[in-house]
Design a protein around this nucleic acid. Structure first.
Lengths: 327, 327
DNA sequence: TTGAAAGCGGTACCAC
DNA sequence: GTGGTACCGCTTTCAA
């Protein structure tokens, strides 16, 4: 097996406790000694043993992320950012794709300092006991005992719907998935706003897709736009869906925003991979990353933590939105 | 912090070494004692400390997977299967999305038993030194010192191309990505076969896409099929691309397989989410999973390991292929 | 400024 | 069958 501090101690002719201090850059070791030791460590390719270290220090400087829905690809971008951000706070990230309970146990055994759980199914109340603090990214749940960060998807789509009606739209469609609680939230926001408006002659429509790829948006939009009576505005459940919707509009000879307004639920910064800049609504990814790492640091330091943290969605209106032309 | 075997020992009125044995189901402990101890452990919610355990046993029963290209979503399905398969071998899986060198160091510190690296960039020769054995999934590379499992993407597409020409096709298009070495391999196989055929009047064409979503396949196929002279067969770089291609064909009034044959590069089992069953070529996902876990177990047990393991692609011909109608 | 020694939570090998 | 004890590699007092 690998090189230990004892090997280094022998090579440097000092005691192993001196090596330990030197490697942790302790001021208790004289500079020349320190340099000699670090040089030898480098040369020998020393890697500190995380097991031994976390055993004694009770800290691993590691965050465990539970991500059972890997195949959905939903959170990959957020996880990448979190990984980067945590690295800057000198934490490393470990991911498990096992289901919640199993992964929590796994990370408890590994003594990670905190766990972040992407739980698409917040319903189950089974609050697995965990010595390590757990933070969930999902939907605020009254019953949950661990902190939850909620990006208020319902509110986001609600805001978008109200905005579109406020500038005159009277027939709005929502295209999105309904097949899990997270996605369903968005549709709920749409329904809530549309039904709440109570405007005479106002029409709304929910079109379900199974996946959130551009392709699904394309298919759904084709159906919507080729039917007799068509909406003057579409709200889409994701950026990718919107790409497909844009293409469908193009093929149907429908101009955005002249004949059709589009708002996309989206956390991504505008990466301009669409023909026109899309109007979006949602909590910007950077906010999510920052707040999530904040909460993780808080639970690690046992600071006072609010049980539920609602992040505020933002509506960014661009050229993809305009009052309907017939008004 | 958590419950330790000493807490259990105290509660059960036995020594902590007895607890250790009982929990590992050693035959050296009398049944009633064992039961009493395991009951107490359960009640107290005992979780063995992985750090302590791997420190002394030098084994963690954990495999580290390095997956820097998380956002590409390419390997998610394979990773899910690996996770399941390894679980059955009583290994747990930990994933890092950091870049290779960093992740290797991380997993070395964590004393995982073996590392599996999804390295899309096998060119860089920097063979990071690792006390833990590393297995790569990628492209066989003469220089590499650690075992590589190669699914021979080039050969797979080569086989598909030759098959299509053997049944009479004289104009074949390849639709796929070229933007990384892995994807490029497939295009190389196509080119190699097409140019090697040396048939008079044989035409081939490579159409590049940036991503492997159905949408990209749709766009590319539209272009190909709407041009004047069009191919009688298309080989596609992925299952998802093929879905888009099928749709494009449908919209252009081109019948598969009557007017157009399609073979898809694919490792997935037929999940029949296409209107007609697609012909596929590639190493079946189950083979990959099995061989990969085999190799991992081998390196762990220090069995003799072949440095390079080529897996054989299979061509599965279904109703999406047929000789061109004008022949 | 350095070294010695006591653990951290387990496993495994001894005695009894 | 059970308990005692010596580690695993490291951090952290406390003495020298």
């Amino acid at each position: 097996m690998g090189v230990t501090i004892k090997d280094i101690a022998k090579a440097a002719g000092v005691s192993f406790s001196t090596v330990s201090k030197a490697l942790r850059d302790s001021p208790l070791v004289k500079e020349p000694t320190k340099k000699r030791i670090t040089d030898i460590a480098m040369e020998l390719g020393y890697q500190p043993n995380a097991a031994a270290r976390s055993l004694v220090s009770k800290k691993s400087h590691t965050i465990g992320i539970i991500w059972p829905t890997i195949e959905g690809t939903a959170h990959s971008s957020l996880i990448t950012r979190l990984n980067t951000q945590l690295e800057q706070l000198s934490y490393t990230t470990l991911i498990s794709i096992n289901e919640k309970e199993f992964a929590i146990n796994l990370f408890n055994r590994y003594q990670v300092d905190a766990i972040l759980c992407f739980d698409d199914n917040p319903e189950r109340l089974t609050d697995t006991s965990s010595a390590v603090p757990v933070v969930s990214y999902g939907i605020a749940d009254k019953g949950s005992s661990s902190p939850v960060v909620d990006v208020q998807r319902k509110k986001a789509v609600y805001m978008a719907t109200n905005y579109l009606s406020s500038i005159g739209h009277r027939f709005i469609s929502y295209i999105g998935a309904l097949n899990n609680p997270i996605q369903d939230e968005k549709a709920k926001g749409f329904k809530l706003a549309a039904e709440g408006l109570g405007l005479p002659g106002f029409t709304h429509q929910i079109v379900e897709v199974q996946k959130l790829d551009p392709y699904d948006g394309y298919i759904a939009a084709k159906e919507v736009l080729e039917s007799g009576e068509r909406p003057t505005a579409i709200i889409s459940g994701s950026h990718d869906l919107s790409k497909g919707i844009l293409r469908a509009a193009g093929e149907c000879g429908i101009k955005v925003p002249d004949d059709l307004s589009i708002i996309s639920y989206d956390n991504l910064p505008d990466d301009s991979d669409t023909p026109i800049p899309l109007s979006t609504v949602g909590v910007p990814m950077d906010h999510i990353t920052l707040r999530l790492t904040d909460v993780l640091m808080d639970v690690i330091n046992e600071d006072d933590i609010e049980k539920v943290l609602f992040l505020e969605p933002e509506l960014k209106v661009t050229d993809s939105c305009r009052p309907p032309s017939n008004h």
